[in-house]
Structure formats: structure tokens, C-alpha cells
């Protein structure tokens, strides 16, 4: 049951990234996805009676924190260049 809840969270996060236009909200959805994965790890670990799941959660949480920091720094840099947090405004890559 916890696993399906985690899957639902993951799906919500995914839809958030794909459908939302604001970068900050996309980052929050990304965090949601990561936490859903964490929950899945713990749930399956609990189910199998191993601690391996919780060990992996440590790794994932660390990475998520670091990635959040970098992501926010990138958002600030992006804002300074493009003067907007709308993803549709960021289109320099093609040229």
C-alpha cells in the first residue's frame, strides 16, 4: 500500500515537471519525485526485512540536497540572463 502511494507521488511529481511552466515549481516537483523514490526504497526494505533500502535512502537524500542547491543556483543564473523564470523564455540552445 505504501508502495502504491509512493508511485502516485512519483507520478504527480512527473506530471508537475512536464506540465508546469515555472522553473521553481519544476524543481519542487523534482524533489517530490526524489522523495517518492526514497519512500519506495524504505517500503520495499521494510517488506523484505533488510536494511539495504534505508542505506540507499541516505545516498539519495544527500544527492537530492546537493542537487537542490545547484539547481537553485542555476535558477538564479538563468534569471540573471533571461530576466524570467518561465521555461518558455529560455531558448538559447538552438542557436
Amino acid at each position: 500500500m505504501v508502495e502504491s502511494f509512493a508511485a502516485a507521488l512519483f507520478l504527480i511529481g512527473l506530471l508537475g515537471i512536464v506540465l508546469r511552466r515555472t522553473i521553481l515549481v519544476m524543481l519542487m516537483s523534482l524533489e517530490l519525485m526524489l522523495n517518492a523514490v526514497n519512500l519506495t526504497f524504505v517500503a520495499f526494505g521494510q517488506q523484505q526485512g533488510l536494511l539495504t533500502g534505508q542505506v540507499y535512502v541516505f545516498f539519495t537524500m544527500t544527492i537530492a540536497a546537493a542537487e537542490a542547491a545547484i539547481g537553485l543556483a542555476l535558477v538564479i543564473a538563468l534569471f540573471r540572463t533571461f530576466r524570467s523564470v518561465d521555461t518558455h523564455a529560455v531558448h538559447g540552445m538552438r542557436e
Partner: peptide, 17 residues
């Protein structure tokens, strides 16, 4: 080759997903 790039972030994300 760079014409393959959509250039838009949301399209890239959608393709990735």
C-alpha cells in the same frame, strides 16, 4: 545537427520522460 535540438526546455523534458 544542432537543428535537432528543440531549444525549449519543456520539450526536452517531455522527450526525456
Amino acid at each position: 545537427l544542432r537543428l535537432i535540438q528543440p531549444g525549449f526546455l519543456h520539450i526536452s523534458i517531455a522527450c526525456m520522460v
